[in-house]
Design a protein around this nucleic acid. Structure first.
Length: 428
RNA sequence: GGAGGCGUGGCUGAGUGGUUGAAGGCACUGGUUUCGAAAACCAGCAUGGGAGAAAUCUCAUCGUGAGUUCAAAUCUCACCGCCUCCGCCA
């Protein structure tokens, strides 16, 4: 949610954001500001009546008290109505995109800002992960479809083990302050080198909290359990970002960095027919997610750190990738700046999205009421960043396709070998 | 799931209808003292909204939401959460 005072002073910015982010809502700013002012006026009237009520109560003026009570009963519903209308419009407004965000209608407007590594030349035609996985018996979507439905899979054998090798690998990087220090120095990123705190968060979330994260929508995309009025999360971000709602940090406590491991649940509504084979797009996958809280003036650098950590991770696996600055039409509503990383998938002969890094500025924090008390005593919303550390399913695909051999076996990346108990090749 | 108990400020803890936004303690901040520190003493110390140049004034908030009352942290109801015992369970 944006700050109404910011909106009043920066209407053009907000209007541009709505247009450039393709938000399908007709917002009348005169109406919005009118509602805000009307609400303020009603609140003032109620405040004054309350003052009189308190006065009457103190002096035990019963008749006066009854009179004021009746008057208040007229105003209360008015306030409720106006507040509701006001909040409805406020909830539609997106975050403002950063100045360096390209303006574009959809993914065609995204900009590749750098790339790393050279796609390996194979002396045979590289296969896609589902063919490799089926032949090796490590991905079974047929049985999963019978048992659970489409877009589910069994990961087996060496691939199942590799999932946990990746988890170990990510945790070992992100909890190591030395590595973070080297990366910030090497990339000239000026943020504290505080390591990430490992977290296994809940995978279910209450509707009200989901809404405060501004992640309840699109509801079609969410799994909902009516008997308990609860949602399954689509990312660890959802229950980690909300960890500190209604909390005020002291300035020197920040940044706070978490690395969470959880299963993510997605209905993939509207993706019918898209990426139906294998495990690229499934209803359930495991993911390691970074979530950080920091001072407003540090949040861009913080996002740069998260991207640098992602790049470091891919480099340790020697996987070629490109870094993409996402344009207005393709970025999320709460995003200020979104950077994706696409990793080379030889079987598909193209880069596919494996990572995303979202800088939300104060947009989520304002609704979550997560704030910081500055040294001078002022209190303001913190800035929040979230970013993929490792979407395990998609990384497994990248590893399978990049490390495949002519005989259909898969070489285990060197850094993962120790985490796989010394296993060097996944074969039948 | 059954029985009972409980939710008050950063923490602890008093407060069962009337200047209680809330005693006391701890923690924290500033000061006095000290060569310095500890201790002691003094002072300050919730958040949000509104008015004001400011001092300050004012409204709301004692898990959440409704209700009773001239008046609610205190009474009623619902919901949420926590604790203890029993049951079940990884």
């Amino acid at each position: 949610m944006l700050d109404i005072k910011f909106i009043k002073e920066n209407q053009e910015l907000v209007k541009d954001a709505i247009k450039n982010k393709n938000i399908k809502a007709e917002i009348d700013f005169d109406v919005l500001i009118g509602l805000y002012e009307k609400r303020l006026q009603i609140k003032k009237d109620i405040d004054e009546l309350n003052r009189q009520k308190n006065e009457a109560a103190k002096t035990r003026n019963i008749e006066e008290g009854i009179r004021i009570k009746n008057e208040l009963s007229n105003l209360d519903p008015q306030l409720e109505t106006v507040t509701k209308e006001f909040m409805t419009i406020m909830g539609l407004l997106p975050n403002i995109p950063s100045a360096d965000t390209p303006i574009g209608p959809d993914e065609s407007g995204n900009q590749v800002i750098r790339n790393w590594g050279t796609p390996k030349q194979f002396d045979f035609t590289p296969k896609e992960h589902f063919d490799l996985g089926r032949a090796l018996g490590v991905i079974d979507t047929e049985t999963a479809t019978e048992v659970s439905g489409s877009r589910f899979a069994y990961l087996k054998g060496g691939l199942a083990l590799m999932q946990f090798a990746l988890v170990q690998h990510v945790f070992s990087i992100l909890t190591n302050e030395e590595i973070i220090k080297n990366i910030t120095t090497g990339s000239k990123i000026s943020v504290p080198t505080k390591p990430f705190i490992p977290v296994v968060p809940p995978v279910m979330i209450r509707p009200a909290v989901y809404s405060r994260m501004d992640r309840l929508e699109p509801k079609d995309e969410r799994y909902y359990i009516p008997s308990d009025d609860i949602y399954l999360i689509g990312s660890a971000e959802h229950t980690m970002g909300s960890m500190h709602m209604d909390h005020i940090f002291e300035e020197d406590e920040l940044p706070i960095r978490y690395i969470g491991y959880s299963t993510a649940f997605r209905r993939e509504a509207g993706a019918a027919g898209k990426d139906t084979k294998g495990i690229l797009r499934v209803h359930q996958f495991d993911k390691l997610e970074m979530e950080t809280f920091c001072l407003p003036e540090q949040s861009i650098q913080e996002q740069e750190l998260l991207v640098a950590m992602q790049e470091h991770f891919l480099q340790t696996l020697n996987l070629p990738y490109q870094v993409v600055l996402i344009c207005t039409g393709d970025m999320g509503k709460p995003d200020y700046r979104q950077i994706d990383i696409e990793t080379w998938m030889p079987g598909q002969n193209r880069y596919r999205e494996t990572h995303t890094a979202d800088l939300m500025t104060s947009f989520q924090a304002r609704r979550l009421n997560t704030r910081v008390r500055r040294k001078d005593g002022t209190i303001e919303p913190v800035h929040m960043n979230d970013a993929t550390a490792c979407a395990i399913g998609r990384l497994l695909i990248a590893i399978m396709e990049n490390y495949q051999n002519a005989d259909g076996t898969i070489t285990v990346p060197e850094v993962l070998v120790p985490h796989l108990g010394g296993m060097k090749v996944i074969s039948k």
